[in-house]
């Protein structure tokens, strides 16, 4: 029987919630017994994805929501961060290192590059109704035992 679990939280696309998202995902992932490096990698990737929602998804003053779903099956964690914002016009361009659509705001344009470096896979789906970033990472020495 496979060990599995999931959680999902939805919060407003505000920068103050980035820290909340990081703590939340870290608390959930502890069940898999990750190393400090692995948990820091996951927190950083989540922070990048949530920052994209906060900065780019809702360009008007009215901020929408961000949903973070985390699930694991055996030793692999899957995290999906989604918004219902304006979407990314050119995903390929957005994933290029140092590309930013807001150069006047001193942005590094390294968000997707960091996600790709710290996680095993990163998939992005986007249209005019929103964006979904799905990331996976295998925990090297997972020792999870879920009691149902």
């Amino acid at each position: 029987m496979k060990n599995s679990n999931f959680m999902e939280v939805t919060f407003k696309a505000l920068s103050v919630n980035e820290g909340f998202a990081r703590v939340c995902v870290a608390s959930f992932c502890v069940q898999l017994n990750p190393s400090v490096d692995e948990i820091t990698d996951i927190k950083t990737a989540v922070s990048e994805a949530v920052t994209n929602c906060v900065v780019h998804a809702y360009p008007t003053q009215i901020k929408g929501d961000v949903t973070m779903r985390c699930e694991f099956e055996d030793d692999t964690i899957t995290i999906v961060i989604s918004d219902r914002g304006v979407g990314i016009k050119d995903i390929e361009k957005a994933r290029e290192p140092f590309y930013t659509s807001k150069p006047s705001q001193e942005r590094s344009g390294m968000g997707f590059t960091v996600m790709e470096s710290f996680m095993d896979t990163v998939d992005v789906v986007s249209n005019s109704f929103g964006t979904q970033v799905k990331m996976t990472k295998k925990i090297a020495e997972s020792k999870c035992e879920v009691v149902s």
Binding site: E48, E106, S108
Partner: peptide, 13 residues
């Protein structure tokens, strides 16, 4: 305690 790529933008600026 923590920094993501937003911090890189701040430092490059």
């Amino acid at each position: 305690e923590f920094m993501d790529s937003t911090g890189i933008g701040v430092l490059i600026g």
